[in-house]
């Protein structure tokens, strides 16, 4: 049987890639997809821990993460569409009105 460390390492790598995507990419859609990547890596960690402790709670939490991710995508994409309509861009650096 594989140790849980292998799954956690994969989860960490995927999460970090998601972070880099959020920080580096300027296309709002790709930033969003990167966030989905991070959510999935966390899901993997939850399921790995659920397996290690043989508790079903970790899997239930993943279920809820799925729900929240769905909602987040729906609302987030709606926002992106609206921003694109009003400003004709999806570059998040162009949306910087809220600054000091």
């Amino acid at each position: 049987m594989l140790p849980v460390a292998a799954y956690l390492a994969l989860s960490a790598v995927l999460f970090t890639m998601g972070v880099v995507g959020v920080l580096v990419r300027r296309n709002a859609l790709i930033v969003f997809i990167s966030i989905e990547l991070m959510l999935n890596s966390v899901n993997l960690a939850f399921i790995a821990f659920a397996r290690q402790h043989l508790g079903i709670d970790g899997q239930v939490i993943v279920f809820f993460v799925l729900v929240v991710a769905a909602v987040e995508v729906v609302v987030g994409l709606a926002l992106i569409v609206e921003i694109f309509r009003s400003r004709s861009t999806v570059d998040i650096d162009d949306v910087d009105l809220l600054r000091g």
Binding site: L2, P3, A5, L8, A12, F15, T16, R51
Partner: peptide, 12 residues
């Protein structure tokens, strides 16, 4: 993160 996760080497 890796430093934290490698500790869990016990087989499942």
């Amino acid at each position: 993160l890796l430093a934290g996760s490698v500790a869990a080497t016990r087989p499942l």
